[in-house]
């Protein structure tokens, strides 16, 4: 297996006010692989991945130390445009959050804000993205209905389609199935496995089975520290650290 580094976190510390929530994290994520971040809730998983598209910039009174590289470029560097970073690093949120617009507009929004004006190419891209997100068949007759009328699982796939349309290189999933039923969860998981052909995927989950089912690599975070990182199979079968083993066997969490 040839693993090419796509994202690299180096000595990352993160603070909310005076409270440190991430401690000295070093981690690499590889191209065309699914990497999962697991750990009990409140361990800083979501905070950590929100650093990769600089979403934490929006929260006041926070501070980051260390470096994050995307294709070996420091994304917090002086001449880096945060908007461009976010175009390359897409994100799917915990709770499906489609815009209060039509299904079509939800997907075309990202294209329009990225300066694409040609109606024809927008339409092609919308169809392609919906198709890739395995939603096209279900919505093709109601593209101009409100997205809020879709089911939870459909809404989440729409959010994925919306994200795909801007052609990111990395997609961050922040507990994408946390508010979905098992059937919808399954379809999202299948989708993620399909998407890794084209993208680098990082997924936060508190569901260990989910990590085991879909990821190639797994990182275990506990109380803001990276306890262990490695190929998923190894981490789940022969964990190196005692804490990892205890977590996996349900001693806490």
């Amino acid at each position: 297996m040839n693993n090419e580094v796509k994202i690299k976190a180096k000595n990352v510390n993160f603070y909310y006010g005076n409270k440190q929530v991430l401690e000295n994290i070093d981690l690499e994520f590889y191209q065309n692989r699914v990497s999962a971040l697991i750990g009990p809730s409140g361990c800083g998983k979501s905070t950590f991945i929100r650093l990769f598209n600089r979403m934490n910039d929006l929260i006041s009174n926070t501070r980051m130390e260390g470096k994050i590289y995307l294709d070996n470029i420091d994304i917090n560097g002086k001449n880096v445009d945060v908007v461009k970073i976010r175009r390359l690093v897409g994100m799917v949120f915990q709770k499906p959050n489609p815009f209060p617009k039509t299904i079509y507009e939800n997907v075309s929004y990202g294209l329009e804000v990225n300066g694409i004006k040609d109606k024809k190419s927008i339409e092609e891209k919308v169809i392609e993205s919906l198709d890739r997100a395995a939603l096209w068949r279900e919505v093709k007759d109601r593209l101009h209905d409100s997205a809020l009328g879709l089911s939870g699982g459909q809404q989440q796939r729409l959010c994925i389609a919306r994200c795909l349309a801007v052609e990111p290189e990395v997609i961050l999933f922040d507990e994408p199935c946390a508010s979905l039923d098992p059937i919808s969860t399954r379809s999202i998981e299948e989708l993620i496995l399909e998407l890794k052909k084209y993208y680098t995927i990082v997924i936060v989950t508190h569901n260990m089975q989910q990590a085991a089912r879909i990821s190639d690599f797994t990182a275990f975070l506990y109380l803001g520290e990276l306890i262990e990182f490695g190929p998923t199979e190894k981490l789940f079968t022969v964990p190196k650290e005692k804490t990892t083993e205890e977590y996996l066997t349900g001693k806490f969490g």
């Binding site: 470029i73 994304i75 001449n79 880096v80 445009d81």
Partner: peptide, 9 residues
């Protein structure tokens, strides 16, 4: 470079 700041800023 692909990350540099846009004119739109």
């Amino acid at each position: 470079m692909k990350f540099t700041i846009r004119a739109g800023v």
